[in-house]
Design a protein around this nucleic acid. Structure first.
Lengths: 257, 257
DNA sequence: TAGTGGTCTAGACCACTTA
DNA sequence: AAGTGGTCTAGACCACTAG
């Protein structure tokens, strides 16, 4: 249909309702929300097949691509799963589909007052555990770094890291003297290693971490362990952040928006 | 262009290369990965503007919608941010953009051996804290439930929950006698409350939780606090899961795939 | 006014499943 | 052979920004 002869719809969505809608909601979002509601309310019970693409086109009066976009959203939310040639099926979504963003952790305290202090940087030899994690031979040279991040002058997190030594990659010079926290966190990804695996656990402070953070051994903490990798998934850095438990919490939301 | 007269491209992507590509990679994914690499490698430094949609169409030889889809993916990954009328800009992505999925937590131990035990269920009056969280008046009736989830016969998590009492919604009967863990987790969402907010923290066991989990007071644990809401975001249930720390960990991956 | 991101259309083709 | 999900096209229109 040529848009210059459009009658009931415009490109941005449905025409503003007579009542005067405040916000224009895109059609694909309207459809996604409508279908999400039906899944949540049990109109499409877990495991059952949703109406096909063409049926939904008729129901909502939109073109296939628009329905498709809505389905993509629902699929990314884990609400439905599409199967080629068979159909799209409602999933049973539960708590385990929740996803926590780490930025809900940093957002509250990550500001200009954050300061990073280099505690030590040295060359050492990989022990068995380090060698296994970094996929190098035991006894190979690795860089060992310890950093402390302070917030309002107080220790907030303690970072220990082993980095594969590669003379062709002058990491040490450029990375060790970081003073800005943002650059520090940034160094975990943007310019450095595009891939990685992270694990978050609750731990008790060992003697070393406790001393660094100025707390008592055995105190409560979060441990964010990381293995950063290069483009071909070869491990380059292994380490862990020890976070003071009171300062950090992960938040997540269920449901639309 | 009519597809029946296609020459160099087919709908599924580029024509199979002479070498014989194993897997057909959709064009939008190829483009998204290519652009993601450029952002990560600093070809498009943080804050800089990416080539416009039409430029990318020319570069990759695809139609606007395909480029658009790639951009949507990058935006959802937090790698870029589009601004109407101005352009699409590279973001500085760091650790704080990581997102953890709770299913990496349950995946390992959630199976048929999991058992749920109802410890207590009673009607009580909301104290100030409960009233504030559930948006009811202090002294109003609320349902108080305590559950224990066992794995291989051992206590794994302890759940405490306050539920707004609403005689029109016979929650108690249907929810209290759950015996399947899957149905239990499911009850947090699918059929019950479509929305909610979750917070994950590290805590020490209080006397009550320690007794329930068969551990010692002061021991390490994760606390998953939840506020479930109805469709209009009115709180309906407030509670928290106390998780034995050794059994639970959150995992995440950085980068493409 | 020209350019940009964002939305939408009305088709097409493919790979796949089911009958 | 018919139906379905998934991909892609070659346009269009809108809201917005900037020169």
């Amino acid at each position: 249909m040529d848009k210059r002869s459009a009658e009931k719809t415009v490109a941005g969505g449905t025409l503003p309702a007579g009542g005067g809608a405040d916000q224009v909601v895109p059609a694909y979002r309207r459809i996604a929300n409508a279908l999400a509601d039906r899944v949540n309310l049990g109109v499409y019970p877990p495991g059952s097949r949703l109406p096909s693409g063409s049926e939904l086109c008729r129901e909502f009066g939109v073109s296939p691509m628009t329905v498709r976009k809505a389905m993509t959203i629902l699929e990314s939310r884990g609400l439905v799963a599409g199967v080629k040639g068979r159909g799209t099926f409602a999933r049973s979504v539960d708590l385990s589909d929740t996803s926590f963003r780490l930025d809900s952790l940093t957002g509250e305290w990550l500001d200009e007052t954050a300061e990073i202090r280099l505690l030590s940087a040295s060359m050492t030899r990989a022990d068995d555990k380090v060698a296994a994690t970094l996929a190098v031979a035991p006894g190979d040279r690795v860089i060992f770094v310890r950093r402390l991040v302070l917030h309002n002058g107080d220790p907030a997190m303690y970072h220990t890291e082993y980095i594969v030594y590669d003379p062709r990659r002058p990491l040490v010079e450029s990375q060790l003297q970081l003073t800005s926290l943002h650059a520090f966190l940034d160094s975990g990804r943007a310019r450095r290693f595009p891939r990685g695996e992270l694990t978050l656990t609750a731990v008790k402070l060992d003697a070393d971490s406790a001393r660094a953070l100025g707390e008592s051994e055995g105190d409560l903490a979060l441990c964010l362990e990381h293995v950063f990798q290069d483009g071909s998934r070869a491990p380059v850095s292994w380490g862990w952040f020890i976070l003071r438990a009171e300062l950090f919490r992960l938040k997540a939301r269920l449901g639309p928006e």
